[in-house]
Simulated scan of single mutants.
Amino acid sequence: MEVQKNIGYVTLLLTMIAGYCDTVTFVAADSIFSAHVTGNFIVFAYQIIKGSDIHAWIKLLTFPVFIVAVITGGRIALKATNRYTLLFWEGILLLVSGIASYVFGYMEIFTEWAMYTVALTTVFGMGLQNAFGKLYSKETHGPTTMMTGNVTQAALDLGNLLKNGCKDPEVVISFKKQLVTIIGFLIGCFLGAIAGKLFGLGTLIVPGIAMIICYLYHRNN
């Protein structure tokens, strides 16, 4: 039961951080999705058609950056003795990104390119989290950066519950797991929207610290 609770806490934390980072970069970094990188294709196409942004092509950079991050995550995992090492490096990247944002702002050199660099670094961090989810799938209730699959499973479970009630305990458990991921991501998005609007990219410090704490907690496990 303790292990199950621990998985629930880790899932909630990772989904909140993914939703938070995704929304912070979207709000404070020229509508760039850091977790749902394929969403950037839509934003890119929209901006090209509208002719509203000469830097729209930067949205496409999120895809190769994300791929390199996942590959890097796989390499790190091969050498790491602790499966949470990927989350540690994600935390470091987010922490450095947040600090850099504040430093650049304080020095009044926070240009568009500095903003894009911070955003793409965040994309790299989300790539590491994605790699963690794939390599250590039993550590969470499901994908923590992309909710489409979780929502689909929750809808299937809900359909079964409406039809058969709570007779099948596995369906009930599965539905509860999906709710953890979906609600966690939603809470993260809401907090990220507020933080991104009020404080900008510097608020990436918060999820960075949270990731490092998560790693330290699981360091000896």
Rank of each mutant, 00 (worst) to 15 (best):
S101F: 01
S101C: 07
Y102K: 10
F104R: 01
G105L: 02
G105E: 02
Y106M: 05
Y106D: 05
M107E: 05
M107Q: 06
M107R: 02
I109C: 04
I109R: 03
I109S: 04
E112P: 07
E112H: 06
E112M: 06
W113Y: 06
Y116G: 01
T117Y: 01
V118F: 01
A119P: 07
L120S: 02
T121C: 08
T122A: 10
T122F: 01
V123M: 01
F124C: 09
F124I: 05
G125N: 08
G127L: 11
G127P: 09
G127V: 07
L128F: 03
Q129Y: 06
N130F: 04
A131T: 07
A131F: 02
F132T: 04
F132A: 03
L135A: 14
L135I: 14
Y136N: 14
Y136E: 10
S137V: 11
S137F: 13
K138F: 10
E139A: 15
T140V: 15
T140W: 08
T140E: 06
G142Q: 09
G142K: 06
G142T: 09
T148F: 06
T152H: 02
T152K: 14
T152I: 15
T152L: 05
T152D: 12
A154I: 12
A154H: 02
A155D: 11
A155N: 06
D157Q: 12
D157V: 07
L158C: 15
L158R: 06
L158G: 15
L161D: 13
L162F: 15
L162Q: 11
C166F: 15
C166P: 02
C166W: 13
C166Q: 08
K167M: 12
K167H: 07
D168H: 08
E170A: 14
E170V: 11
V171W: 05
V171M: 12
I173P: 01
F175G: 10
